[in-house]
Design a protein around this nucleic acid. Sequence first.
DNA 1: TGAATAGTGTCTCTAAGACAATATAGC
DNA 2: GCTATATTGTCTTAGAGACACTATTCA
Lengths: 230, 230
Amino acid sequence: MAAKAEHPNVLCTVDVVLLTLRDDALQVLLLRRTAEPFAGALALPGGYVHAQSDHDASDAAARVLRDKAGVESPYLEQLATFSGPARDPRGWSVSIAHFALLPESLLPPLHEGAVWKPVERLPALPFDHRQIVQEAVERVRAKSQYSSLPVHLCGERFTLPQLQAVYEAVLGEPVNKVSFRRKIDELGMLEPIEGEFTAGGAHRPAQLYRLRKAFRHVLSTSGRGLNSGA
Amino acid sequence: MAAKAEHPNVLCTVDVVLLTLRDDALQVLLLRRTAEPFAGALALPGGYVHAQSDHDASDAAARVLRDKAGVESPYLEQLATFSGPARDPRGWSVSIAHFALLPESLLPPLHEGAVWKPVERLPALPFDHRQIVQEAVERVRAKSQYSSLPVHLCGERFTLPQLQAVYEAVLGEPVNKVSFRRKIDELGMLEPIEGEFTAGGAHRPAQLYRLRKAFRHVLSTSGRGLNSGA
DNA sequence: TGAATAGTGTCTCTAAGACAATATAGC
DNA sequence: GCTATATTGTCTTAGAGACACTATTCA
């Protein structure tokens, strides 16, 4: 039918907010754009949806991360869709925004033109990328209150004190140790490993844990969260 | 540039899950399709994004509701975006799904071919509309736990017992009266009106309330919800 | 043994749910 | 007064945070 001909002029893209923890702060990956518009500016990794090859929008986001950032299989979740006539100078556009989490230990070597920026100190960004980053951070913080989301910022093996530090960095506030450990236990997503953490410490070593298989790509949630708001 | 020519074949649409409360049950508006594909089938109100006139995707959703269902200004929120090559037989498509809430009292007379169906007893639906409805209902239930969302299913004036009944119908479970009133008070979104509820009752009348101006299109949220599950 | 951090026991305090008392209408 | 529902008071209980004690390692 004539639908395609009648409504051909919507640009369909994906953008990805890739977050990691560096220097105890949430940081977002920005790439220097090589093409117009905004060539030379730092922006989120993004690109057109490829109707020929992408299985869906999240698949497009994964492809963008793989091709443009060298990131292989991070935790990836749809954030929201941004749209309108003005956000992209090329015309009426839709961006199906996603966010992704990756532990610093799994980051690939940075491509030329790729930089990490703390989400609290963003440079000027083209399109509506600033708003997209802000909504992604809000979403991550909100979900971290009551779910296992931040484990995806840890490597495969980690101790509870390490995981607590990750939660605190993401939430931006200290977390009660006893409550934290109760909550983690209640979420039932971790299993201890026999090897222990020995590190440089002149102190008691910490038990290493890993994510149970069942939670590899599913979040665990609990009714009530940690600090229920500053 | 050549972008539009390179990537023209993504259909960009919106679908709307319009929910109301009828007979103490959440019900969704379905329209009988008049055009292919799936002409004659019941489906969600939806349509193409009009790049010429729509301000953004939510504006497109509001237009679809207005034109196809006669609904003027309901509470409207973006749900998620569904995409892929198979969900629409016309080709690779994107649907920016929204949900809307409207009190039964404000429903317009039903157009020809429009029907309400309880969300627990959906008929077969084309596209991925069943999944869209299910995710909308999940979202509404989740947000109702800790926010003022269900007030948008009440008319302009209502009593606390009425509002509690709405919460219970949405959540599908009874709510503790004392906790409920404490929570509503804490949310600070309602103000009492001087007129009282007189109705048929051979009993004490209930105070009428209305939503404060500031919360007309903004939700009020609290850290911990009502029944936190099961 | 002392320092440092890991892990746990337990008390306190907040807030949700249960229960029931009181309030106010129509009859 | 009697019935029915609205509204409020207060007790119980679950769970989050504070505090501090014990455990274990290395120097």
